[in-house]
């Protein structure tokens, strides 16, 4: 289609490298800012308690086969009997927790802060890139692409004769935005900003309902087939000890 373009080395020194470095640094900055702004709200005792109960029930379910049948039945009754089991939720209280969460202003505030710490740097960087670097080719992707990708990769260049593998600076910004996620997870550890967004997505629908998960856990515990797995462990212990002695 078009022969190779000759790009000025000044573009590399003053656009490509600075843009990438700035993207990385802004990611790091955003991580630390969101870490600073994270308010440590005092959690509700009831919700914590329900969460712990769920974890205990889950542990019981996971380790069910390692305890004798009698012990398992006793524990299951403790968790899920219909009168005063820990996982039993009375009918009337189910809506209560959700309403409480809606009325809690701290939570909405926290989410808004997280949201802002995501959106503001992105808007600023995009404006910066747009203002300084718009309208020329900054990079070239080393593999051919179809015409379909032109609007994605040559955002800001209105020429139809340039080969699609050339990338405008604005699109280089977008490539960085998506591609650096892996690097951030390496240099910032597990709980970086991108993970925060996923968590926020889950929380924002108020899909987290403790009483519902209590009920689900109770059902799960009820259908566990108990089968004691350790009748032969005495023999094994004997064998190991014999080996040690001899």
């Amino acid at each position: 289609m078009a022969e190779d373009l000759v790009l000025d080395t000044a573009i590399r020194d003053w656009v490509l490298i600075p843009l990438s470095v700035v993207m990385v640094l802004i990611g790091v900055l955003r991580y630390f800012v969101s870490k600073l702004m994270r308010s440590s709200q005092s959690p509700d005792a009831k919700i914590i308690k329900e969460g712990q109960v769920i974890i205990r029930a889950r542990n019981l379910r996971a380790g069910a086969n390692f305890i004798p049948p009698k012990s398992f039945r006793a524990r299951r009754a403790y968790f899920s009997n219909e009168e005063n089991g820990l996982l039993f939720v009375p009918k009337g209280q189910a809506q209560n927790a959700q309403a409480q969460m809606f009325s809690d202003p701290n939570m909405a505030m926290d989410m808004m802060k997280k949201n802002l710490s995501m959106i503001i740097p992105q808007t600023l960087t995009f404006a910066w890139v747009n203002f300084f670097f718009s309208g020329f080719v900054a990079a070239k992707i080393p593999f051919p692409l179809t015409q379909r990708f032109r609007s994605m990769l040559q955002n800001g260049i209105d020429l139809s004769t340039v080969d699609v593998s050339y990338v405008s600076s604005r699109s280089w910004y977008f490539l960085n935005l998506f591609g650096l996620r892996g690097l951030f997870s390496l240099i910032l550890g597990e709980e970086n900003a991108t993970d925060d967004t996923q968590r926020m997505m889950q929380m924002s629908g108020f899909g987290f309902d403790p009483s519902k998960s209590l009920g689900a856990e109770k059902d799960g515990l009820d259908i566990v087939q108990h089968e004691w797995a350790l009748p032969k462990f005495e023999q094994r212990a004997e064998a190991v000890l014999k080996k040690l002695v001899s």
Binding site: T9, K140, I141, P142, N176, L180, R181, G182
Partner: peptide, 21 residues
């Protein structure tokens, strides 16, 4: 395939720096 995006980004980056200018 999770690392593909990172791969493409850094591939492009170093390829551009070394070869096309």
């Amino acid at each position: 395939l999770g690392g593909l995006m990172s791969f493409v980004l850094f591939w492009t980056f170093s390829y551009d720096i070394v070869h096309i200018f």
